[in-house]
Amino acid sequence: MAHLRKELRETLLRLHGPLLGGEPLAAALGHRSVASLRQARRRGQVMVPLFTVPNRRGWFALTLDVADWLSATRMGASAGGRISPS
């Protein structure tokens, strides 16, 4: 898990910097659009802390929080849903 977490952190930081928002945030969390992320946030279904930034529109998350959530979610997947490497 530590290796996956480290790789996700490095990749997301390199691609997006320390802050994710808009389409990149929605995509990283597995939503098809910002609108679907917005609905999930309203329903309390987003498991990553979201926050606003002064003088910026929309909601944001720390890239490292997203990477950590992704790796924890992946590692918590049931063994039946795993795909074996080729």
Rank of each mutant, 00 (worst) to 15 (best):
A28N: 01
R57S: 15
A61V: 09
S84G: 10
Q39D: 14
A2D: 07
A35L: 00
W69Q: 06
A72E: 09
P18N: 07
M1T: 06
F60C: 05
L4E: 01
G30A: 00
V46S: 00
G22K: 14
H31V: 02
L25I: 12
M47R: 15
V53S: 12
R38L: 05
R5Y: 00
R41H: 10
G81R: 15
R57T: 14
A26H: 03
L70S: 01
L62V: 04
T52Q: 15
V34G: 10
H16W: 11
R9L: 05
R42D: 06
M75G: 10
R56T: 12
R9H: 12
L13Q: 07
D65N: 03
L70E: 06
L4S: 09
R74V: 12
L20I: 07
S36C: 02
S71L: 09
L12E: 03
G80C: 13
A40G: 06
G21W: 08
I83T: 15
M1C: 05
M75S: 15
G44S: 01
L37K: 06
R14P: 05
L15Q: 13
G30L: 02
L70D: 02
S78E: 12
L25D: 02
H16Q: 05
A2S: 10
L50V: 12
I83R: 14
S33A: 01
L37D: 03
A40L: 12
E7S: 10
N55S: 10
G58M: 05
V46D: 03
T73L: 08
P85I: 08
H3Y: 10
